[in-house]
Amino acid sequence: MAKPQRWIFALGLVGLALSRLTSPSLLAVETLKRERVTGAASTAATVGVDYVRAADFAAKFGLKPEPSPDGKKLTLKSPWTEIALEAGSREIAHNGLRIFLGDGVRQQGGHFLISKLDIDKVLVPLLLPGYGLGTQATGAASYGSPPNLKTIVIDPGHGGRDPGKVNAKLGVNEKTMTLDTAQRLARLLEARGYKVLLTRLGDSSLDTDKNTDLRARAHFARAAAADLFISLHYNAVDGSPATLARVRGAEVYTLTPQHQHSSGDPERQDKNGAAVALPGNAYDHWNMIIGHEVHRALVKTVAVADRGLKRARFAVLREVTCPAILVEAGFLSNDEEAHKIMSPEYRQQLAEAIASGVVMYDAALEAVRRRAQH
């Protein structure tokens, strides 16, 4: 049984959610209609993408559009939300946090346009978790039944003959750091009443073949009937000393939705991959919520550099049958950040932030359950 503080968090979120629903603009909220903006796309990459006018979206969610003086940016504001858009960019800022969309924001005929998929898969989950997933009654908001959160599988990246990223100068590797961080996170979550399993308990892999090893981690979670899957990693880049010193920070990944392109594919080259519906895509809505909560906790409580909430079709995310995220908690290639990661105290801070994000995600799920009952 989870400890009482989980319900305190949940009740707080419920109160916030209900206050949102009682505002006049949100009482009138309805299922977002599919809208194709007519006219030639600005680039070949956006051909065939359905867009919604940002102002129309804003009106439905009680947000006020405020354009920048030069007309290249638009901010959607309410007392509790600020979403900053920039024409031509896939990056937005949600309450100051970096989030990467699947399609770039466009301008056409004086209007800012957001892809319909990004509204459904990013903005709606962030503004109203659970909205639009249940049976829709005329004129009423609908809320889907949220997943349970009892069993959590933590995946310490790499292991065995695969060290992951390595900083040879400092004598530190990824596989050791991820295992220690996972063990710390597991203890924190178990103390809150969750059942926690790790995909590996020591310096080992699940299979000698890399691709099989990655897929086996997702299937470990499936066999355990996990309600949440968290894959932990540390990052690195190659390049000049200036590049190694500059690149730092944390990023959180969720599975790229079907018909969209990953954050690492800005030119939309992987058309075959984008066309496929993967098992993990069934949880796109909830993936965004857990991703956002963990991302926010890392940036706000550990003060890591914000590299964004991103999308990728990583092997460990594709075949899970529950909400899932992959966390890149810092750069071992950056000596200053690597020194921090080597510190047990810092790894404890990272684990505590991730655990806090999980608790807030659980509170969001409970808020959805309560809204669905009204």
Rank of each mutant, 00 (worst) to 15 (best):
N173H: 11
V359C: 10
S89A: 14
S68P: 13
L32Y: 07
T181M: 14
K33L: 10
S42N: 14
Y51K: 04
T38S: 14
A297V: 09
L13W: 06
V247Y: 14
A59P: 04
Y131H: 10
A315E: 14
D207L: 03
Y143V: 10
A182V: 08
R6L: 15
H158D: 12
G15L: 13
F100T: 06
L179A: 10
A274V: 09
P257D: 10
P266W: 03
G308F: 02
P69A: 15
G12P: 00
T38V: 11
P67E: 11
H292S: 08
K310F: 09
L117T: 13
V153L: 00
Y234F: 15
L32N: 04
R318C: 12
T46S: 13
Y143A: 01
P24M: 08
G96P: 12
G48V: 07
Q258C: 06
A297L: 07
D213T: 11
L206E: 11
A182M: 09
L189V: 13
T254G: 04
V276K: 11
L13C: 00
D270W: 02
L170Y: 10
R222H: 03
E293A: 01
H111S: 15
M177G: 01
F61G: 07
N287L: 00
R161S: 15
T22E: 14
R90C: 03
E91F: 02
L189P: 03
K210F: 12
E293V: 00
A93P: 00
T243I: 14
S142Y: 05
A40R: 13
T212L: 13
H374L: 14
M288L: 08
H233Y: 08
L201D: 13
G264L: 02
K72Q: 15
G308L: 09
T256M: 04
V276P: 01
P65K: 08
G357W: 09
F61R: 02
G132I: 11
V316Q: 02
K300I: 01
D284R: 01
K175W: 05
K310P: 12
L185Q: 06
G62R: 05
F57Q: 05
L228K: 00
G104K: 12
A93R: 15
G62Y: 08
Q373V: 07
D238A: 14
I114D: 01
H233N: 11
G159P: 12
V47G: 02
K33A: 15
G132H: 07
A275S: 15
G12F: 03
V368E: 13
S19K: 08
K3H: 08
A363E: 07
L21E: 14
T256N: 05
N148D: 11
G132W: 07
L74H: 04
G109K: 05
